[in-house]
Every structure is written in C-alpha cells, then in structure tokens.
Write a protein that binds this DNA or RNA. Structure first.
Length: 669
RNA sequence: GGCGAAGUAGCUCAGUUGGUCAGAGCAGGCGGCUCAUAUCCGCCGUGUCGGGGGUUCAAAUCCCUCCUUCGCCA
C-alpha cells in the first residue's frame, strides 16, 4: 500500500449555461473553494469540480433565437462562468460541460446499464400539452382541464417515454438518511426530504422524443429519444472522476464526496440523484449540503425586481479578497443572509481594516521607525504575563479553526481567528513596546516579535478565505509564505533580522456612504438639550427616554395608533392591468394573476378573490397593486404583490381607477 | 390545508446533552494610549430569552397551547 493521505472531493452544482452569474453562484463556488483550501491545509488530497449544464429546451430555444446552433450558443455562454472563476481566485481542478464527450459517454453507459437491469423501462407518458407555452402538464396540474399557466386549451397526448424506477429505492433511501445523520445538512433540509419521502415516490420520466427536444444526449437503446436534463446533469459528479473508465480514481474521490447545492435543488439531489446511484450500484455521496440564499433587503433576488447583485461589480469595487471574506463571514452555511453594501463595508472596515490591516500596519510601522525595519529578536519576550497567554492561544488556534470548518461553521472559524487578531491588538496595548523601547529595547523587540508571529499564524489560517491578500501580506512579513499544512503552523516561523516591507496599509478603509439616518443619533446630536436633561435625571431610564424620541414617527408607543404620511409613502401603489387569471389548484378562492405594471415583465400575483369574483371576468380589468410588498409564496406559488379589493356581504369589487383606463404602472396616492 | 423550522439587548446574531447561559459584534456614552488606516485599549446593557400553561430542586434550553415569521408539498 502506498502512503495514503485522506481525500476530499467537493462539487458545486453545474450552473445553467443560459444564466448570468450572480452573487449566489459566486457564493457557492467560493464556499467550495474555501472548503477545498482548508482541507488541503488539513493534509487532504483534494479535488474540486464545477461546471455548466448545457442541455435542454431553453438552451435550444435561446440558440434558435440568436440564429446559432445550440453548441455555438453554449460555447459562447459557458465563458461567463469559466472566465469568472479565476478572477475570484477559484481553484477548481476541473470544469465540466455536459456536452463534452467524456461526460456523454458515461451518461450513455449509465442509461444502458439501467435499461439492461430493468430500472429503466418504456412506459406511457400521459400528458396535457399546451400549444401556447409548449409544455406538458400532468392531469393534477391542470385547472378545470385548462393550462395552469395561461388557462388556455390543452391537448391530451399519450406519448411513449422511458421511466426510471425511482420508487424501487425509496425505502433504502429513507434508511440511509436515518442511518447517516450528517448526510443531508442542515438538519432542517434533511427533515424536508424525509417529509417528502413519506409519500410514495413516482417513477421518473427521463426521456423526451427528439421530435420535441433534440438538444440532449441520445438514449443508447433508442435513437428516437434524448435523455431529459436531470439524468444527464447529475451524472457530471461521477463522470469527471472516472466512473466506468478509471475505477481506482473514481472510488478514491467518490468515497469522500461533498455536494454543495442551493436549497432549490434539494429534492433533485437528495431523491433523484441518490436513487439513481442506488440503481447503478454505487455508494451515496458523503454529504449533501444545501446552502441558503442571498437576499437583498430581505427579499429574494429576481430579475423582475432588478435587485440582482453582480459579483463582478462587487469585486471591482472592493476587491476579490474583501468580497470572499464578506460572503464567508456573513453567511451561516444553510441559512439565508441579507446582502447589503452597508454590511459589506462594515465588515471590511471594522474587521479587515481596523483589526487585521491596522495590526499589520502598526507593527511594521513601528519596527520601521524603531527597529531598523526588520523582525526583532524574540529574546525572552516582553516580560509580560500576556506572552504566555498569546502563545497558548496561537498553539490551539489551528485545531479550533479546523473543528469549525469540519462542522461547516465557516463563519465561526473566521470569527475565531479574528478574535485572536483582536487579542493581538490588546496585547500590543498591554505590553506597550512603543514606550518600553526607550528603557528596554530587548523587551520591546520581544513584544513585537510575539505580535508579528501571532499575526503570521492568523494570516495562515485565513489563507483559504483570502488567498491573494494573505500571500502578499505574509510576503511583506519577512518574505514568508503560506504553510502547506496546519500541522506545520508552529510558533516561531518568523526569522529575526529579515526585512519587513509593507509599503501601504493592506486593507484601506472605505468611506461609509450615508445609508440612512439612525433614529438613535437624533437626540444625541440634534437635541442636546433633551439628552442633557435625560442625563441630569440620571440612570438608564432617562437615557432610554432620550433614545426613544420618535424622530421618524415610526417608533414609540405614542405613534403606533396613526400612520404618518411617511409611513404611507412607503407603500407603493400602482395601477395594473390583469393579463391572465387562473385558479390555484387546491384552493377555493386563490387566483394566480399575471399583471402588467408597466415593467419589463408582468408580475405574478396570487389574490384571494376567486370565491367572489368569476375568474373569466378578471383578465383585462384594471386593479390597484401594492407593488413593493415583499414577495412571498402562497400555496407554493410566488406572489409579487397584492391586489386591493373591497368585500362585503354583497360581493367583491376591485379597487381601481374609474373612467378612462390608466397606463399600467401609474402611481396611486 | 399537510409536514417542518424559527421567534434572545436599538440592529445582526451566539447560546452542545436543562444547573455562572443571560452573551458577542455593531450602534451610543465616558475614559486611556499614540506604534497604527480619525485606527487601538478599558469601562457602561434590569433585555418579561414571542405570549400563556406545565414538568423539575433547577428551563432561553424539555412538554402542551396560542400568536407571528419562514421553508417544503415533484
């Protein structure tokens, strides 16, 4: 047996080639990169895979629209992802495109194997086809026998198709999830999957006749069909690492695989993919980790709301390292987080500039002035009790960081390091080398050495998060480089006498723009008299009274009875024209509306008016829409606004402009 | 409607298996230092741990119930 190192294999989803990268893609890929880099520092041999999904109807359509072949279209579009990653310091080992021969042959072989074993069978797919949206619907999805999206006519079509016997593996999957508590993380997602599995699984239709979709991988046993997207896409995780072609390589990586996914593709990975693997006689991946979404103003990003965060813009404005730091520091893996430039800048200024950057800058600046610009000799330290404390903290820091990373608490790992950085700043204040230098240069040198060495260790531990910046900084600290392994991160790596060279502060502060005036500031600054009176009265109570001046009219018990004019202005009321309306299945009064608000795309709005208002009378009506309500799901359908209506015992009327119809998007108020 | 998760200081959130768990950061106030990026360090928080009930010697931490928010339901 050759010497074996532990291994670690991490994947991102393959992103849909038609998409433009947004902050969510960047987050997932950076997270994968950070995990890969940490694990390599833990001593693991690592493999990191990302890529793009290139097949499917939408790609075919988009290409057609542009007058290109689908392949030409993909060749062009995939660059949006492939070229982005190096600029975010992503260290992926491979980049898979599902149109590559190395992938297609594995998909075909997998299909053939499942066909031969009877897990893929030909059956009848009964669907209802809507000419208008060129889509199939199941009987359950139809609404009164009409298309659920347009309310239009549908044709019942019985079409031969191939099915995967997913149902056969349901119990095995449930058992595996129960036996491996950290298989699907976080736990709430695991529960979600188990809940889903309480109902019997249907078999999965995995083919499309070429007459309807030709842009896909042909079934090896029936050239009239291509395989449908998921079956193709999911296999990327194993095709790249050698399934069917390089067994030792495949086994090595597959046994240690971690899939990072967005919560929107949880079922696909936890149910479709896992049952496919069972059927193929392969092991489960080690972990499936569903991360959360970046929200903007606590609202999901969407094109129609125009609030999509472009990672390139953030990188260009603030630098790749700050961007990576923020994304990793701010989000708890598995939960949603809010993205705002304000919180970004606060993290940058407080943690990177004030704490970390300033520590480097003050130490190097001091050494340059007082110590000949070189790393001083450690001697016997500063003679201060804090020496031992700092060195003990530094000694146990790698293990603590490793523990947090291994339990996916990346943000806690970072926080742990930053707490140590704060301890180092305190250490400098305690030992006061800038004073001590006048009386005891050796002790001052000892203090600076300890602080610098602590900084070196902290920087190494942050390398996976900010590789470029850390490498540069370590270079500035006496020409050091990143240690390969946590095990090598021992105290005393800095060589006394080597030159320090930090020409400028490593993390310049960014000016914080005025984001919004804070009510708390008003009494302190604008109303000194109130504050003084409060202080004179003494105690926390008085302070509280001063602090609760309802300067914006929205806080304080007194104001709660009335809405102020400002409150009213927060509600954006717009005139809209209803384009389509259809009942929501399973509900007796909800209607799904498509409403023109004069925006590029119509809004989808779910309204509870169906029991009082005939659905066929709604299209064409004008309505008043609350346009800036936070979008929410109603009965599983996203609703992007609210329709105003008045209901009493005589029925319901829509609240809308009377007389001449108004242009969609006209402001009401 | 079914299933699941969450509700902790002004803000963002930590709080393993019930017993220094009532905390951190930010914001605010006061003070100190000057090596440093108007940076750093120290001090200052009586918040019904969503409401109510229960179990226990002991609950933010377990149980019940209600309210609110969020997620999933191919």
């Amino acid at each position: 047996m050759p010497e074996s190192r532990p291994a670690y294999y991490v994947t991102t989803p393959i992103y849909y080639v038609n998409d433009r990268p947004h902050i969510g893609h960047a987050y997932c890929t950076i997270l994968a990169d950070v995990l890969r880099r940490y694990h390599s520092m833990f001593g693991c041999e690592t493999f990191f895979l990302t890529g793009v999904d290139e097949h499917g109807q939408k790609v075919e359509e988009a290409a057609k629209k542009r007058g290109l072949t689908p392949q030409q279209h993909c060749d062009e579009m995939q660059a949006h992802f492939r070229d982005l990653w190096p600029t975010l310091d992503i260290s992926n080992d491979d980049f898979i495109r599902t149109t590559e021969p190395r992938h297609e042959r594995v998909v075909k072989q997998a299909l053939q194997q499942l066909f031969d074993s009877g897990d893929i069978y030909k059956g009848e797919y009964e669907g209802f086809y809507s000419q208008r949206v060129e889509k199939f619907f199941t009987e359950d999805e139809l609404i009164d026998g009409k298309c659920p999206e347009t309310g239009g006519e549908v044709q019942r079509i019985v079409e031969a198709n191939y099915f995967f016997r997913m149902s056969r593996y349901q119990q095995r999957l449930i058992d595996h999830i129960n036996a491996n508590p950290d298989f699907i993380r976080p736990e709430s997602r695991k529960n979600e999957v188990l809940g889903f599995l309480r109902k019997p699984l249907q078999d999965l239709c995995i083919s499309r006749p070429k007459s309807r979709l030709s842009w896909g991988i042909e079934l090896p046993f029936d050239s009239d069909y291509v395989t449908y997207v998921w079956f193709d896409a999911l296999l990327n995780y194993v095709s790249v690492i050698g399934l069917f072609h390089d067994d030792p390589r495949f086994r090595k990586w597959w046994a240690v695989s971690t899939h990072l996914i967005g919560k929107d593709i949880l079922t696909t990975h936890s149910v479709y993919w896992t049952t496919m693997l069972f059927a193929l006689g392969l092991d489960m991946p080690r972990h499936i980790i569903a991360h959360g979404w970046w929200l903007v103003d606590n609202t999901k990003m969407s094109k129609s709301l125009g609030n999509v965060i472009n990672p390139l813009a953030m990188r260009d404005k603030y630098g790749v390292d700050s961007l990576r730091y923020f994304l990793m520091r701010e989000m708890v893996v598995g939960l949603d987080s809010d993205f705002s430039e304000e919180s970004f800048l606060k993290r940058h200024n407080f943690e990177l500039a004030n704490d970390l950057g300033n520590l480097a800058n003050r130490l190097v600046g001091f050494a340059a002035k007082q110590m000949g610009g070189v790393i001083p000799a450690p001697g016997t330290g500063s003679g201060h009790a804090a020496d031992a404390e700092v060195m003990a903290m530094a000694a146990e820091l790698p293990a603590r960081v490793r523990g947090h990373v291994e339990s996916l608490r990346v943000e806690t790992a970072i926080e742990t390091v930053m707490n140590f950085v704060r301890r180092l700043n305190r250490y400098v204040a305690e030992t006061e080398p800038f004073k001590v230098i006048k009386t005891d240069p050796a002790a001052a040198g000892g203090a600076v050495y300890i602080a610098l060495e602590g900084l070196r260790i902290a920087l190494n531990l942050l390398w996976p998060v900010m590789p470029k910046k850390v490498e540069n900084l370590l270079g500035a600290l006496g020409g050091n480089s990143v240690v390969g392994y946590f095990d090598d991160l021992k105290w005393g790596g800095l060589v006394p006498g080597t030159a320090l060279n930090l020409p400028e502060p490593p993390f310049p502060r960014f000016e914080l723009p005025e984001f919004e005036t804070r009510p708390a500031e008003a009494p302190a600054k604008a109303d000194k008299a109130v504050a003084d009176r409060a202080n004179a009265a003494g105690g926390a109570k008085a302070e509280k009274a001063a602090g609760s001046q309802p300067s914006d009219g929205s806080s304080g018990a007194v104001a709660s009875e009335h809405a102020t004019f400002d409150d009213f202005l927060k509600i954006k009321l717009l005139v809209g024209t209803v384009l389509t309306a259809e009942p929501v299945p399973g509900s007796d009064k909800l209607l799904k509306l498509s409403v023109d608000l004069g925006e590029p795309a119509p809004r989808q709005i779910v309204a509870g008016i169906g029991d009082r208002f005939p659905v066929e009378k709604v299209p064409g009506s004008q309505v008043t829409v609350v346009a800036n309500l936070k979008p929410r799901k109603v009965f599983g359908i996203m609703s992007e606004g609210m329709i105003l209506a008045a209901t009493d015992e005589n029925g319901l009327s829509l609240i809308a402009p009377s007389g001449t119809p108004r242009k969609p998007g006209t402001r009401v108020g």
